[in-house]
Amino acid sequence: MPAAVSVVAGLFEEGPGGLRLLATRCTSCDTLYFPRRPTCRNPACETKAVEDAQLPRDGTIHSFTIQRYQPPAMFRIDDWKPYAIGVVDLGAGVQVMGILEGVAFDELAIGMPVRVTGRTLYRDPEGLDVRTFAFVPGGSEAA
């Protein structure tokens, strides 16, 4: 397997156990934030001290769309073709947007169980696989 690099640092980690989305938890009101944030924006929260946390791996599709037009060049992907983007409810009051894959467009459905995974966007000139997070059908094995 070629060496890999995350498309942006600090958003997720990939290891033997799979991909984890890196979050922040407020130690006083328990609110989870993704991506990581330096403080808590809950107006009822006084202390706003935060610690590192990880998001749940499993969720359900809250809603989705198929992007039929190629996004601007800032989105780099090899072999572009129309793809699905969804909002996934991970529980714990957090909903995360991401690419949905591993399922035919006409089988996508609101409420479908999905789990987070990693996927390669493109191979850069140094031969590194540039990776992002995505969601695929099914619960995780670790769950």
């Binding site: 942006v8 992007q67 037009y69 800032m74 989105f75 947007m97 991401g98 992002t132 997070f133």
Partner: peptide, 10 residues
């Protein structure tokens, strides 16, 4: 930046 590079969300 994140929405573009991670998923290209228009």
């Amino acid at each position: 930046y994140l929405r573009w590079v991670t998923m290209g969300a228009t």
